[in-house]
Simulated scan of single mutants.
Amino acid sequence: MPRPVRVVLVHGSQLSGVQWTRYAGLLGPDVEVVVPDLPAHGSRRGEEFTWEGALAVVGEAVEGGDPSVPVVLAGHSLGGYLAMAWAAEHPTRLAGLALLGATAVPAGPGAALYRGIARLEARLGVDRVSRALDRQFDALLPPELAAVVKEAGYGFDGIPAAWHGVMTRCRPSMLEAVTCPVLLVAGQLDQLRVDARRFERAARSARWVRRVVVRHGLHVFPLTHPHETAAALWELVADARDRDDIDQ
């Protein structure tokens, strides 16, 4: 019988754990899929977003199961930067780390891009931005998944604090001491893959590092290309089953 593996999937900003709705089925019955909501998002929308609070949520998800089961931690966008930050603080704890759409250095032009998006959303207001996101997901996703995402709603209140944390704290050097395999996945048309080689070079202690580009994928590729994303994650799951040297 295959060794169980725990996969923690951390969502991107504005969204929630429902973005991973299809992944339990795609990853299989011997994989425990955990999809926490970050503060100010999803079921925690009423909570204030702080960087420390978000890392605590990630830590609870990682440590919340059987301690003998290896853990793969993956995050999309904001969730990817948080996953990297948590791994930097626990560099030998994980069986695998995947950064999905989170390999742009959030400084200089990258930081300016997100400041511009934040200003635009503030000018448009919550209702107009929500309607725009609804239309985007209606166009990109199967109707049943779009309905689930829209029903869960969007978290806007935590965006300034979340991206301030990313821009001031997150750099490729955070990967330097991480010992588990590191997977860097991005959509072909994803603006947050521009510095992937820098992240790859920084992961000097990892057993192995691999970059994967999802053809025709936008930044929301984990939602639009779940089969390709799950296939990439499966490489970490398979590797985790062969490991017995993970700190618990």
Score class of each variant (00 low, 15 high):
A206W: 03
F137Y: 15
G75F: 04
L78Q: 02
R201M: 12
V212C: 10
A206N: 04
A232M: 07
R93A: 15
A61N: 10
V209M: 08
T168D: 06
R119I: 01
P160L: 06
C180Y: 00
C170Y: 00
G12M: 03
T21Y: 09
A196T: 13
I246W: 07
R241E: 06
D190Y: 04
G28H: 11
A87P: 00
G28W: 12
G80K: 11
A152M: 09
G28T: 09
F49Q: 03
I117N: 00
G75V: 07
R44P: 07
T179Y: 03
L78F: 14
G116Q: 13
Q19Y: 01
H216Y: 07
R128D: 05
D127R: 14
E235V: 15
A102V: 09
R135C: 04
A85T: 06
L97D: 01
L184G: 12
V5A: 01
G153P: 12
A147Q: 14
L97G: 06
V5Q: 03
W163V: 01
P181C: 01
L184M: 11
T92V: 13
W208E: 12
L175H: 03
V69S: 07
C170T: 03
K150C: 03
R123L: 15
W20N: 02
V34G: 07
H164I: 02
P29I: 08
G17F: 08
S13I: 10
M1T: 11
Y154F: 15
P181Q: 04
P226H: 09
F137S: 05
V57S: 05
L99S: 11
R22W: 01
G187T: 01
D66Y: 10
T103R: 09
L175M: 14
E63Q: 09
L99A: 12
L73M: 05
S16G: 08
H41W: 07
V57F: 09
F49E: 02
Q136D: 04
C180I: 05
W20T: 05
P4E: 02
R211N: 13
R207G: 12
G217E: 01
I159N: 08
R115H: 13
W51C: 05
R93G: 04
V62W: 00
L233P: 02
E228V: 13
L141I: 12
V8M: 12
R135K: 14
P222C: 02
G155R: 01
A147F: 06
V213Q: 02
D30M: 10
V69C: 13
A102D: 05
L82I: 03
D30W: 10
V33W: 06
L141H: 11
A162H: 03
P142Y: 03
V35L: 12
R131Q: 15
D242C: 04
L223A: 05
P172A: 10
M84N: 05
L26G: 05
R243Y: 05
L38T: 04
